[in-house]
Amino acid sequence: MSHLKQQDQRFRIAHKEAWIGCGLAAFNIVWWYGFAYTLGSKPPEEYTYILGFPAWFFWSCIVGFLVMVILVILVVKFVLKEVPFDEEVEHE
């Protein structure tokens, strides 16, 4: 019985973390798409440049990547829980 309960607990955590993965990917897509196809849809003569890159590219690809790295680090540090993977953790 205690064994079963512990299983449930581990799977609950795993399910939550899988949803977080979906959330991160959804956020990533929105950020990536949003900057690329709004700032980037202007005619190229009207582009502004940041650090030499067109603004759409700078925000979508460079900043977007850095934002994802920061989010992943935050999620790992503050949200993910450590669980044992093996079975033999049966007490009593």
Partner: peptide, 22 residues
Amino acid sequence: WVLLAMTQVATGYFVLLILGKK
């Protein structure tokens, strides 16, 4: 094409979170 290639950033976290612990 660089924009297209950046769709791959997701592989870094998505696979491990989805398959992950379960």
